[in-house]
Design a protein around this nucleic acid. Structure first.
Lengths: 128, 128
DNA sequence: ATAGGTGCTGTACCATGGTACGGAGTCAAG
DNA sequence: CTTGACTCCGTACCATGGTACAGCACCTAT
């Protein structure tokens, strides 16, 4: 039991009120205690909500995040370790991909700068 | 006019046949010439399709990609340059975010490895 | 000449992650 | 004691990027 209303919690988590309700429906956040029908949240809910956002930024889907949360409760180290490792591999691949895309875009930006006579070949920007 | 059927084009672009049709509906690929009702594609279509996939990997939405393709036709260097720069900024931010997430996950993986007595705190993995 | 593999069309459906009501009740400040 | 902000619930809707038919035509190899 806490003191935060859903609006305060949402603000602390950087999401909208509807999103909190949505996460509750998805089972990512527990149904909190009610004060006269009104949901009341505590700091643990704030942590949980922030965890969800961070895990999303790491590329986990909401479904995977649900699993992570349940693993946390079960202290299932093995599975947690496996999920983390798998995500690290995916992140590394994504970073490489983004770096390559960045290089292509930088080249494109250079070639499209100014009104030089050099062509500005957008479609071929990602070749090679 | 080319020699490739939609299936061959899709294979060269690493997508499904339905995806090619979808891109056509979205206006990302031009309606090709027909040979007896059958779409025929050429190398330029392959380039275009591959460009779409690369641009997607760079984080452009299909709508933005549509704009890029039209800019290419218009040789609008200024706008192309602006879009490229904006995307580079977004990519850099994303890379930083992913690197941070990676570090958190690496920490989590270390702490959840083995059956040591150290806790395996999944929810707090992304704090700090 | 017949069976598979493609191709055609249109429309419907899918997953993901929310977002937006409407109509009601509650709470705190002026 | 009213006004405005916030909350409740359920259901419907949204954007993005596809994916899946159904029902038909065509071409090629066996």
């Amino acid at each position: 039991m806490g003191t935060l209303t859903i609006g305060k919690l949402a603000a602390k988590g950087g999401v909208g009120v509807e999103t909190v309700r949505y996460y509750q429906r998805r089972g990512l956040l527990a149904e909190p205690t009610r004060d006269n029908g009104i949901r009341r949240y505590g700091d643990d809910d704030v942590h949980r909500l922030r965890f969800i956002r961070s895990a999303q930024a790491a590329g986990f889907t909401l479904e995977e995040i649900g699993e992570l949360l349940s693993l946390d409760a079960l202290q299932d180290r093995t599975r947690a370790h496996a999920l983390a490792e798998a995500r690290i591999v995916a992140i590394d691949a994504k970073i490489v991909e983004l770096q390559s895309a960045r290089a292509s875009l930088a080249r494109l930006a250079t070639e499209c700068a100014g009104n030089t006579s050099v062509a500005c070949p957008i479609i071929s920007a990602f070749e090679a």
